[in-house]
Amino acid sequence: MMTYNDLLKDIEKLVGLHLHSIRPGAELTVEAIEREKCSLSLRNAQGNLRKRSLDEIRNLWSELQKKRIVHVDGFLHGSGSSRNQPETILANLPYIEWLKYNGKKHLAYVEKSTHEFGTLREMNPVEQIGFCELLSKIQSNLHRFSYAVVTNDIKQCIDDFNKDSSYNLTVLEQGAYALSMPNSEVLFLSANKYKLPKGVYPILYCNHNVKSFSSIILNNRSCYIGEINEINVLYME
């Protein structure tokens, strides 16, 4: 099984190459890998040089090994305007291909070399079927949330909540994220998208007497907004 150290050795083979991006116009060059500083030196298509943490690569690699497929934008939950850069680096490795699922780019770890270092390969439609079924199963697993945090700044809220740990983050849909901790899950929702007042909502599970309440659709699931002792509550069936 490939280790993170093996991955870094392969990324070093990309140094100096002009790497094409899945999104046209976002090409880059890996100038250097500084392991001791846990950083990458990258030059973008405009010629600008910047450094980026290797932690993003490490976390994405861990996710790919666990699930074999990842939506990079969702996994990095909007961390910076150039979050396609780690996506580009990984996609240019010979055992990682890309595909679209529900209109969103995903990377897939195919566990064998299917293209050359420094090139991209879009997964063929037949192979995509199996990965899309895998992703559908992952996303269809019902989360058991303890409470919901409704905010206008999801990225900052998640970063503050998760600053001392590295809990697993799942994108449910645009504007909705699940943070999995050892004993519970926290739901983060965009106040603007779901038209909800900001705050923390305890989540209760029931199957009766809630359908007259106002509701939202979350990841194809109906959720109802109620109130107990002047505290907003989110009901899930």
Rank of each mutant, 00 (worst) to 15 (best):
E227K: 14
I225P: 07
V210A: 07
R43T: 15
K211Y: 15
T151A: 08
Q46I: 06
D153R: 13
I69N: 01
L28G: 02
S53I: 00
R221N: 08
T119H: 12
F75K: 03
S79L: 10
Y167G: 03
L134M: 12
G80N: 00
R52P: 01
Y4H: 01
N152S: 10
I203G: 01
K66R: 14
I228F: 07
G118W: 11
K198H: 05
M123D: 03
S41W: 06
N48G: 06
I129W: 00
M236I: 15
K155L: 11
E230I: 06
K163P: 00
A178G: 07
F188S: 01
N102A: 14
K195Y: 08
I158F: 06
L7S: 05
G47R: 04
L90Y: 01
L19N: 08
N5I: 07
L17K: 15
Q174C: 10
I216E: 02
G80S: 01
T29S: 09
I129G: 01
I11H: 03
L134P: 03
A26S: 04
L7G: 04
L17F: 10
G118P: 13
E173A: 09
L19H: 10
A108P: 00
P182W: 14
M123F: 06
D159C: 06
L120Y: 11
D164Q: 03
S214I: 13
T170S: 11
E63N: 06
I57E: 04
Y147P: 00
K100M: 11
E122M: 05
N59W: 10
T114F: 03
E31T: 10
H106T: 03
E133P: 01
Q174R: 15
L17R: 14
K137S: 08
L234P: 00
S39E: 15
A148D: 06
I203H: 02
F145E: 05
V200I: 14
S53A: 07
Q156I: 06
K51C: 14
E31S: 11
F213A: 05
Y224G: 05
R221M: 04
